[in-house]
């Protein structure tokens, strides 16, 4: 490791020294392209975050791609219902690695105000691994910007080798998850046990 003093001296001369890992993470973190996936009211705050006042483009989320094949980040904004859940998982499967999920709003985290319902899925984390969760109903656009920054920090700090390397560099961890099917009253299976386990003891 080169010490900081030497690094800054070299920088003044126009020579930049870094590690491959930092360069890789820096590139990935600063150009996260979200998928246009607004389900309900939080989608409007997501759109407002990409508009002129709370510009999200300056954080690298320049274009919202409509196609999952071209996106890295799925911002699940709004209530996920049981009718919509298989489609969410299918879209997630279609995204290429590395991919991240932000659960925006109370409904995507845990069902939200509509929790006691026959059609509401109590949180998208029952089927997908969620990286960042933003509470709020709806969360302000600044909260979404904070979440993108948190995600960027997470990406910047990931180690590329070793046991806790990210999923896209680890052949053993699955990147695609089984799509639930419509049952008679509920989805089958009601959750994905590999990803989500209810806590062992009640609060």
């Amino acid at each position: 490791m080169i010490e900081e003093g030497l690094k800054s001296e070299l920088q003044k001369q126009g020579v930049y020294v870094t590690t491959l890992e930092d360069l890789y993470n820096w590139g990935r973190a600063n150009s996260v392209w979200p998928l246009t996936f607004g389900l309900a009211c939080c989608a409007i705050e997501m759109m407002a975050a990409s508009m002129a006042r709370f510009d999200l483009a300056r954080f690298g989320a320049e274009v919202f791609r409509p196609s999952p094949r071209q996106a890295d980040l799925m911002i699940v904004a709004g209530t996920v219902t049981k009718k919509m859940a298989p489609l969410v998982v299918r879209l997630y499967n279609q995204m290429p690695e590395p991919k991240y999920v932000i659960a925006m709003g109370a409904c995507a985290i845990s069902g939200g105000p509509f929790k006691q319902g026959y059609n509401v899925l109590k949180g998208i984390d029952r089927y997908l691994p969620v990286d960042v969760a933003i509470p709020g109903c709806p969360p302000r656009p600044e909260a979404l910007i904070h979440a993108i920054m948190t995600l960027q920090e997470k990406i910047l700090n990931q180690k590329l080798t070793g046991p806790d390397r990210p999923r896209h560099l680890n052949a053993d961890v699955p990147g695609e998850f089984p799509v639930p099917a419509y049952g008679e009253h509920d989805l089958e299976p009601p959750n994905n046990p590999g990803i989500w386990q209810p806590p062992a003891s009640p609060r």
């Binding site: 389900l39 709004g78 009718k83 919509m84 489609l87 006691q116 319902g117 026959y118 059609n119």
Partner: peptide, 25 residues
């Protein structure tokens, strides 16, 4: 029906004033 959040059933189980924030949504 992809966003059917059974607002009407929730309305039957909570009081009149508690339904006001649900009407926002």
């Amino acid at each position: 029906g992809y966003l059917h959040r059974n607002h009407e059933k929730i309305g039957e189980n909570i009081s009149y004033l508690s339904s006001m924030p649900y009407t926002d949504r």
